[in-house]
Write a protein that binds this DNA or RNA. Structure first.
Length: 507
RNA sequence: GUCCCCAUCGUCUAGAGGCCUAGGACACCGGACUUUCACUUCGGCAACACGGGUUCGACUCCCGUUGGGGACGCCA
């Protein structure tokens, strides 16, 4: 049997280090068994998937040094490798489930489901779909289908019994079917959910080992049920522990830089990052901490992974990166790396127009722009804090900026400006009050080149990180405050969207 | 809240019942080297969550407690 494994990222944001982490272990497992490593794009979420992000995934994985045998950009015998191009396949498969009464159409509206959940929560009942449409007659189901009533297709999960899944690292894990509700397989837009698409594709692509993050453990019973419904052989399941924030929670961009692009922009070498990832929950038999991808693969043994989640420790990453810099490069080679990074005329020349009026001598350029070429900047709370506000309010303002920038897909000065303006109007304060502080947060200095252009040049992830650091220098924000602020922000955004929608309608 | 997973220094980890007075690495603290800094080097600090079993013997096996995390979406 040829080993075939895959990673299946969804293109809904900057490529995540967690994806690279899973990629590394899948790659190592495949290559150490002379198997194939597949890249599949899970873009079934039509509202969030973006082609630019897909491209970002390709680039980041290549940058870090991982290559795949089959994928959307490479082809292969089991394509297409982009789920949005496989809808017809899922339709066909779900028809057979419908036919065999393993699944059913559900016409419940979002409103009804929301009410149901509210009721369940209020009465402290188990949350999950209540099976309202489950026993609908075939005739009614067909009739409403012909009427083009919006609906989803749900998996028929048994009421009784239990599902035992075998995890290679954890042994048998037992789930009671009572705890599992009827999972949606096809959304009302006709696209499959992850659960359906992943099972169908893994089977059709002859995936032998499903190596993925621990967050998937609890949905594995649904997947097993699907394999059984189709009468397919199960792959082997291997759930790897998660990468963690310093506080022990799942690594998240709210608290930490998570995108591979951040590490690139911050000046880390791809092989050091990849090497560091290979240290997470894993140790080589010889205890070596610095190793190449080939070395990692050569004696890779998935049974050596330890089960506790690993905190992603920037300090140790920096130490490893430093070792690569001094041990693996001649000065000439290092210069090549530096110019591939930001010390090149393409990047540096962008500073010139924004600095021209500010230069007294040519030598003024670099000191003033140093923050654009730095991994981190030092924040002085005394100058960071807004003059007429306390540290906590200042932090709150900065956090709002983070929220405003979060969903930006296109990182350009004009759009950044527009989003900062939103922040100001949200707090009903002059934009100055925010920008003056933001200057310091982003640059670490009181005097800096134009803000929005600097942010554009720095890059989204670096900018985020600077602001996060600034917030923590200001003493951080409590969980409650953050939650409250985020709710208010979401509500305000919702309102402004409905207002602008109406405006469009009126026209 | 319910279900599931996990548990060795602050962090990453070694440890497959006696090899453990628990080893290594990062960070931190000292010393040496160095015009300075860095590198290097020597040393130090620092952990088996707790309670019960099993056993001649538990870091290691079993049970419980506690703690942490994850999942409970027409997101993946």
């Amino acid at each position: 049997m040829t080993v075939r494994v895959r990673i299946a990222p969804s293109p809904t944001g900057s490529p995540h280090v967690g994806t690279a982490y899973m990629g590394l272990f899948n790659y190592a497992f495949a290559k150490s068994h002379n198997g194939s490593f597949i890249l599949r794009i899970e873009d079934t979420d039509q509202t969030r998937s973006r082609p630019e992000y897909e491209d970002g995934i390709f680039k980041s994985l290549k940058w870090i040094g991982l290559s795949w045998d089959e994928g959307p950009d490479k082809g292969g015998d089991f394509g297409p490798y982009r789920q949005s191009e496989r809808t017809e396949i899922y339709q066909r498969h779900v028809e057979s489930l419908l036919h065999n009464h393993k699944a059913y159409r559900c016409f419940c509206t979002a409103e009804r489901l929301a009410e149901m959940r509210a009721y369940q929560r209020a009465n402290k009942l188990a949350e999950g779909y209540d099976g309202y449409c489950r026993d609908m007659g075939q005739e009614e189901s067909e009739r409403r289908l012909k009427n083009k009533e919006p609906h989803v297709v749900r998996l028929m999960v048994p009421d009784l019994g239990e599902c035992v899944m075998e995890d290679r690292l954890r042994g048998p894990i037992c789930y009671d079917f009572k705890q599992i509700d009827d999972q949606v397989l096809i959304k009302s837009d006709g696209f499959p959910t992850y659960h359906l698409a992943n099972v169908v594709d893994d089977h059709l692509m002859k995936v032998t080992h499903v190596i993925r993050g621990e967050e998937w453990v609890s949905s594995t019973p649904k997947h097993i049920l699907l394999y059984q419904a189709f009468d397919w052989t199960l792959p082997e399941f291997i759930h790897l522990p998660l990468l963690l924030n310093p506080d022990g929670s799942k690594l998240s961009k709210r608290k930490n830089p998570t995108s591979v692009e951040y590490y690139r922009d911050a000046g880390f070498l791809p092989e050091a990052l990849l090497n560091y990832l290979g240290l997470m929950s894993y140790s080589r038999p010889d205890q070596q901490e610095k190793f190449s991808l080939d070395q990692f693969v050569s004696d890779f043994n998935i049974d050596r992974v330890s089960l506790g989640g690993s905190i992603f420790d920037l300090q140790k990453l920096k130490w490893l990166n430093a070792r690569y810099i001094r041990e693996n490069y001649s000065p000439e080679q290092l210069w090549d790396q530096l110019s591939a990074w930001r010390l090149n005329s393409e990047y540096l020349s962008k500073m010139v127009p924004m600095m021209q009026n500010r230069l007294h001598t040519l030598g003024d350029l670099i000191p003033a722009c140093a923050f654009l070429l730095a991994t981190d900047v030092e924040h002085d709370p005394a100058i960071l804090q807004s003059k007429n506000r306390d540290a906590s309010t200042s932090a709150e303002l900065l956090h709002t900026v983070l929220l405003a920038l979060e969903d930006m897909e296109c990182w350009e000065a004009d759009l950044i400006k527009a989003n900062i303006e939103k922040t100001a109007s949200f707090h009903q304060i002059p934009i100055r009050e925010i920008t003056s502080m933001l200057f310091v947060a982003v640059s670490g200095m009181k005097v800096a080149p134009p803000l929005y252009q600097s942010m554009e040049l720095l890059g989204k992830d670096m900018t985020r990180r600077r602001i996060q650091n600034a917030i923590s220098v200001l003493g951080g924000l409590g969980k409650k405050k953050i939650k409250k602020l985020e709710e208010k922000w979401a509500a305000a955004r919702h309102n402004s969207e409905t207002i602008s929608d109406k405006a469009v309608d009126n026209e």
